[in-house]
């Protein structure tokens, strides 16, 4: 219960005036963004920082999209694998998810990118070399991207599992009682409903991956954060370098979350009949 005491006639009411519910935060953010944009245009130091940092945008976006795509595939396998009837698959999937979720992202990035991925590709390459006389080369940037994908694959596996398990068992029972087999029930009854629970948090994870590509700077990948660090360190213009990188991230994440909001609203409107 939220009560609000009107100041006009001293009468208690639960109706709030417009200025109480207005999203002032969005005004503040827009003002800050416009101010930062102006700085970049009119201030030479900021302009220089912008010029040096913005080439990293391509790598940031590319690794976000690739990492998200690969993670989606891993998550689908690991998420449904955790619900498999096969005891081996179920436990392998669970082990992977628990390992990754239990280790902080930074040490995990070092472990995966510097140890697991090279050793795995080495192993693969000795076989490939022996059989086909051909080697599998994973570019440095791709190695960093795969690392993010391996980490987010585990987080997103939990979203898949949670989404599927959020569907009441009565739905499966109704499907099975009509004679649909396990797969048909999953495909036609459970998954379409689970998607509605899965898509919004997936969108959030897309934004989270975008932000976490900044962690790849510890590997030396020349994305936005690494370029900001290099610019700042070489020119001693720390304020300019980090402000500009923060500006770029903010523009990206805010426009993405607005886009997601529209998508979610459209999803709920299309099927108003649903629960």
């Amino acid at each position: 219960m939220s009560e609000f005491r009107s100041s006009r006639d001293g009468r208690i009411t639960d109706e709030r005036p417009w200025w109480d519910t207005f999203p002032w935060w969005s005004v503040i953010i827009v003002v800050v963004l416009v101010w930062m944009g102006c700085q970049i245009i009119v201030n030479d130091d900021y302009g220089l920082a912008w010029e040096r940092i913005i080439p990293g945008l391509g790598l940031t976006l590319r690794s976000t999209i690739y990492a998200f795509g690969i993670a989606l595939g891993i998550a689908l396998i690991a998420g449904t694998g955790q619900m498999s009837r096969n005891v081996v698959i179920r436990n392998l999937a669970r082990t992977y998810v628990e390992f990754v979720r239990g280790i902080p992202m930074l040490p995990l990035i070092f472990t995966v990118a510097l140890i697991l991925v090279p050793e795995f590709t080495d192993l693969l390459n000795t076989r490939l070399d022996a059989w086909f006389g051909w080697e599998f080369k994973l570019s440095f940037e791709m190695r960093a991207t795969v690392t993010l994908a391996v980490i987010y694959g585990a987080y997103m596996a939990e979203i898949f599992r949670g989404g599927i398990q959020s569907i009441p068992p009565g739905q499966t029972e109704a499907g099975r009682s009509l004679g649909l087999n396990r797969r048909q029930t999953m495909r036609s009854v459970v998954l379409p409903q689970a998607m509605r629970a899965i898509i919004p948090p997936m969108g959030n994870d897309f934004i989270a991956i975008l932000k976490d590509t900044s962690l790849l700077s510890v590997l030396g990948a020349l994305e936005i954060t690494q370029r900001a660090r290099q610019f700042s360190a070489s020119t001693f213009k720390f304020r300019e370098g980090y402000f500009v990188s923060a500006f770029i991230y903010l523009v990206l994440t805010l426009s993405l979350s607005v886009l997601l909001g529209v998508l979610e609203r459209r999803m709920t409107r299309d099927r108003k009949g649903e629960r």
Binding site: E173, A174, L178, G179, Q193, R196, E274
Partner: peptide, 16 residues
Amino acid sequence: RAEVGMVFQQFNLFPH
């Protein structure tokens, strides 16, 4: 099961 129809307390219609 295809020959045995079942009606549930909570209806269990497919909401989508």
